[in-house]
């Protein structure tokens, strides 16, 4: 690992991912779903960046583009200084030992026909990470202990574990080859309330213990994202509308969408709730197939002026690393 503290591990520049919509037998392209439409952000080594937004905002697609599970339409993805956006599949395979993905659904993300041990050990085999069979076994047991699973359960199959335990298996698998970047795609939203904290704490403890471990934490739940992240990026219809430190997100949100999103999240405290201002947005998220012109939030925005429908507001710095894409701010 490099000793530098503040260097960027991931630098995403103007990332675009369009999915073509085809019709007929000739698969004629009739339109594009602009799932990700010009996303730019930087991830520093050892930090956690939260990517938050409602379904269809492109947060999952962004995460998958970074892993090159989708081939981005345009843009640059610099991972450890190397542009991986157009690497060949075989070179990419090698890079993938250094990044990992944790999934939302602990049920469908583990192969039901594999034992827990071989699921966790799979990346070791793929990347020939261990020399011998005994080394392999040691590493798998070590990984089990790392995520607080009893190594005696190595031979059990996924269906014999609870949801929370399955998610721990997923985390152990992600850690197998000591990656520097883990993309967590809604890792706790399928779990029970009382189990969620266990996984959040596990992820936090791992980051404290493993120097340089970086998370891109994708979730729709703002309170969770704010809790675990150092910085938060809010996405709406394929674009980032605001990036700021977690602390300032709640205290000083600037973008009207961020404000609305924050106010929509109820706080488990009736005394606080009494005093909160509620912004109820009009209408629903438009389809990315045909997004509104200009700022895509303007039809629902309570601050919109006619100009909003004409220009796409750029993400600009308003000081102290706080970036916002709104002409009214």
């Amino acid at each position: 690992m490099s000793p530098q503290q503040d260097d960027a591990i991931l630098d995403v520049k103007d990332l675009k991912m369009y999915f073509p919509v085809t019709r007929g037998i000739l698969r004629r392209k009739v339109a594009d779903v602009k799932a990700v439409d010009g996303v730019t952000f930087t991830l520093k080594r050892g930090e956690t960046l939260g990517l938050v937004g409602e379904s269809g905002c492109g947060k999952t697609t962004t995460g998958r583009c970074v892993l090159r599970l989708y081939q981005p339409t345009a843009g640059q993805i610099l991972f450890e200084g190397e542009d991986i956006s157009s690497l060949s599949e075989s070179k990419m395979r090698h890079i993938r030992s250094n990044m990992a993905l944790i999934f939302q659904d602990p049920y469908s993300s583990l192969d039901p026909r594999q034992s827990a041990g071989s699921i966790v050990g799979e990346p070791l085999k793929i990347h020939n990470w261990v020399g011998s069979q005994s080394e392999y076994k040691d590493r798998v047991e070590q990984l089990f202990r790392l995520v607080s699973l009893d190594p005696s359960m190595i031979d059990r199959f996924p269906h014999e574990f609870s949801g929370g335990q399955r998610q721990r298996i997923g985390v152990a698998r992600a850690l197998a080859c000591e990656p520097s970047l883990i993309i967590c795609d809604e890792p706790i939203s399928a779990l029970d309330v009382s189990i969620q904290a266990q996984i959040i704490n596990l992820l936090e403890e791992l980051q404290e213990g493993i120097k340089g471990l970086t998370y891109l934490f994708i979730a729709h739940d703002l309170s969770v994202v704010r809790h675990i992240s150092d910085r938060v990026a809010v996405m709406y219809l394929g674009r980032i509308v605001e990036i700021t430190k977690s602390r300032t997100l709640y205290e000083n949100p600037l973008h009207p969408y961020t404000k609305a999103l924050l106010s929509a999240v109820p706080i488990a405290d009736p005394f606080v709730e009494e005093k909160r201002e509620r912004i109820i947005l009009k209408g629903e998220v438009p389809t990315p197939l045909n997004p509104p012109s200009g700022c895509s939030f303007h039809p629902r925005c309570f601050m919109a002026v006619p100009e909003c429908s004409q220009v796409i507001p750029p993400l600009r710095n308003v000081g102290d690393g706080h970036q916002v894409a709104c002409i009214r701010v």
Partner: peptide
């Protein structure tokens, strides 16, 4: 919410992240 008395309720309130929480708050899982 003001005076939870059952251990389960107390546990639930301590283990969920809150939007308005102080920085560095540790969740206490059940």
């Amino acid at each position: 919410f003001g005076k939870p008395r059952h251990p389960y309720t107390i546990g639930l309130l301590k283990c969920i992240p809150r939007l308005d929480e102080e920085e560095g708050r540790k969740l206490v899982p059940i």
